[in-house]
Design a binder for these strands. Sequence first.
DNA 1: ACTTATTTTTAGACTAATCTAAAAATAAGT
DNA 2: ACTTATTTTTAGATTAGTCTAAAAATAAGT
Lengths: 218, 218
Amino acid sequence: MTLTEENYIKGIYHLGKQGKESVSTNAVAKAMKTKASSATDMIKKLSDKQLVNYVKYQGVSLTAQGQLAAKNIIRKHRLWEVFLVEKLNFTWDEVHDVAEQLEHIKSEKLINELDAFLNFPKYDPHGDPIPDKNGNFNSIDKIILANAELKKIYKCVGVKDTSTDFLRYLDTNKIALGTLFEVIHKEPFDNSLKLMYNNTELVVSQHVAKNIFVSIEL
Amino acid sequence: MTLTEENYIKGIYHLGKQGKESVSTNAVAKAMKTKASSATDMIKKLSDKQLVNYVKYQGVSLTAQGQLAAKNIIRKHRLWEVFLVEKLNFTWDEVHDVAEQLEHIKSEKLINELDAFLNFPKYDPHGDPIPDKNGNFNSIDKIILANAELKKIYKCVGVKDTSTDFLRYLDTNKIALGTLFEVIHKEPFDNSLKLMYNNTELVVSQHVAKNIFVSIEL
DNA sequence: ACTTATTTTTAGACTAATCTAAAAATAAGT
DNA sequence: ACTTATTTTTAGATTAGTCTAAAAATAAGT
Ligand SMILES: [Mn+2]
Ligand SMILES: [Mn+2]
Ligand SMILES: [Mn+2]
Ligand SMILES: [Mn+2]
């Protein structure tokens, strides 16, 4: 598999439910930042290699083989992200671009030894689960903070938006994985939330509340 | 710089004395495992980018800029090799192919943090010096074991051939960086050497003796 | 110096991945 | 159902890197 093929497979995986859902050519093109004509060409190529199911004009989905390939790339991406944060003093907003490169390094031994070196982490710095070498991973029940109820305690377990801007916003407000929240007020006017955590109060917009994952309750 | 351009620059560096010496198109082609016509094309491209000095039919050498670029790639290659051996249980014969991939990862922070994480190593697992971020490195005085004198003690400080076959040969004979040798006999017939080290004797061929670097004396 | 051999460059073609523009298929609107 | 809009595919070009075959330059041999 070429680097580009790997990126398409990963893109299709993220677009549908683990790539099982059929996604449109346009959606793929947008995700890969190319044009629809380029996406069509690549989809054909991946279809020839039995990595995707493709019927003209009907969209693509990953085959079992394609799903495994995607999970393998994602496993590498997330393990490298853990490495960068845990061992090389990267912050969670700095890791993604480097992991995009490192995920394409080909060496079974490398990734398995890295996994062991990091003590077989189950989640990456953004709270996303890390597949094991067979593609299996825990998916914990989580909801977006925007849907949390008043007077209950929730734990921050992940972020939806992983942009630098958003992650830095969380940093400056001392919100991290593991932070315990209580929603003390929901403002009907703009759906903003008043949160209580670490003995401080903070009002966050709905936009923010939709991008924080919290555990189902505590 | 593309991955291929980086590999050519590195190749030219290794062929001449740090790339200062002019090397032939054929030599470059052979080192890159391509044809002379492909080498010519790439050399022209590198020349346009001011990375090499090139006059038609007269061979290539690296410019100051090209030398720095080469040393940067070699720095990355060797630091990754140290990482693989020190942290991920790779043996010295397993690291090269993976390092060939890792050396192309682009991130200043990554490589400088890796350097710090490894405690600023000065040599890689094969005894080759690691340039610092400015391209400076220690070159210790060394000779090939084949040129060592009788009755003197030498320390193994490097290997010339880094093939799996040779490195495994050294492993099975318990020869490693730091091993202290005494040459107790030189056989004039085939230039083989009888060595004494670790309280054992071993006869090595001239071929072997030409591929082990030892410190000037001790 | 002149012929032959070798090295190097050029010319033209191929593959992977991309693009623009045009054609074909599907979806939507009345 | 028929027209219009949107999506998707095809056709033809482009760029990076490679190749083979032919031409040009350099090196060697007498
Ligand atoms: Mn990421
Ligand atoms: Mn992540
Ligand atoms: Mn190496
Ligand atoms: Mn090395």
